[in-house]
Design a protein around this nucleic acid. Structure first.
Lengths: 216, 216
DNA sequence: AAATAAATCAAACAATCGTTTGATTAACAA
DNA sequence: TTGTTAATCAAACGATTGTTTGATTTATTT
């Protein structure tokens, strides 16, 4: 795997692959070092310790997600269009960096408050984004619903990758660009039709009035 | 935590709580034994080793899910009604045994083929169930879509619990029965409206013809 | 070329890992 | 009660954990 010259990046890349596969605690520094073809001590040298790797991974992920959201927020678009773009952007990110996303999403080191708190803050920030869109574009203002739908949104977008380990060879599907296109379409459709359904509004594509519907 | 007399059950209960919180590899047998108030050797004695605990957890979970599905399949109902009942049943299970579900769902010990293969088989079985419902009740026959929507289904149902660690205190929401009722409603609505959306069919509640719509 | 800094290395650190042993106690059957 | 099995225990097993040390090599600067 490590073909590049940069040892720090090698460690990071190897770690992402290993942690995505086995979980953070199950991966040892010796295994990382060996596969990265660097000395064990280089991990502490570059990352200050094993947890430093996880920190770097999680920070990288939320920076990438932040960039995606920022680009979309900057242009002023209807909430529905924005959500569509967010889904497309996130699926693209998953497609490109599946392991990174997996690790950042599923690992939650409660014993390292620095990382745990950072991640919590980022999740809350992203949740606030979804909540705002639900309020602006879908007339859903109840905070409890925001939390439920917010989590549903993330789970939906990442659905094929959270449990992805299994499926790779078992469901014989080719994960090409066409798959990701289909995937994006289906997830977008489910979420938008689903959320409109909460407000008893149907056929979002054909709908022409806006914000005139009542809550369920 | 261990108030009961049965040491085996104590070990299991403690393990479920700990593994749900920190992940299987991050939990040590000494920690389990201490909190269970049993001797360390009792773990090997009752479960044959640490991985035996995980095996027991995962088997318990899929047995419970199997029972839920069986009860629903036995009565002959329309696909939509069946899916509604499945969601209700699963959310109820999550409500009652959140930690068990978390562990069984997220832990995938690839280094223990016996458990990994068992889990894979169970997931495939449940996936086949959803696939059949999509075919029967929603005119969706494409296998790739079955996989995508099947994963989406599971992710949706479990959405508030996969990332639940964080949210507990942070989003100040009371997780009472009313919450789980709202949660079930929202998830059901999103999924059903969402899947009907894939077929360009709107307002599933108001729809009165069946299986007469074309695929997108 | 000499001096300074950065990077890499093998080796050892204490701590913890899961498991096993063999003795001891508790429970139950004959 | 005696004999037998089941359950529990402290202690130790070797292996592995993440981290650090101090020497050595490589790279950069003076």
């Amino acid at each position: 795997m490590p073909n590049k010259k940069d040892p720090k990046q090698n460690i990071l890349d190897t770690s992402i692959a290993l942690i995505a596969k086995k979980g953070f605690s199950a991966v040892g520094v010796r295994e990382i070092a060996k596969k990265s073809k660097v000395n064990i001590s280089m991990i502490s040298y570059y990352f200050g310790g094993k947890t430093g790797i996880l920190k770097a991974i999680i920070e990288t992920y939320f920076t990438l997600v932040g960039d995606i959201l920022k680009d979309i927020i900057d242009v002023d678009l209807p909430a529905e269009t924005e959500l569509k773009k967010v889904i497309t952007g996130l699926v693209k990110l998953i497609n490109e960096k599946e392991n990174l996303c997996r690790v950042a999403l599923l690992e939650m080191p409660l014993d390292v408050p620095e990382i745990a708190n950072y991640k919590l803050e980022m999740v809350k920030r992203n949740m606030r984004f979804v909540g705002k869109k639900l309020e602006d574009g879908f007339n859903i203002s109840d905070k409890t619903k925001h939390v439920i739908i917010g989590h549903a949104f993330i789970s939906l977008v990442y659905s094929n990758f959270i449990f992805g380990k299994l499926r790779r060879k078992e469901f014989n599907i080719i994960f090409d660009d066409k798959f990701f296109e289909t995937y994006t379409d289906i997830i977008t459709t489910i979420f938008l039709h689903g959320v409109y359904g909460i407000n008893d509004v149907c056929c979002p594509d054909k709908r022409n009035q806006k914000n005139k519907n009542n809550k369920k």
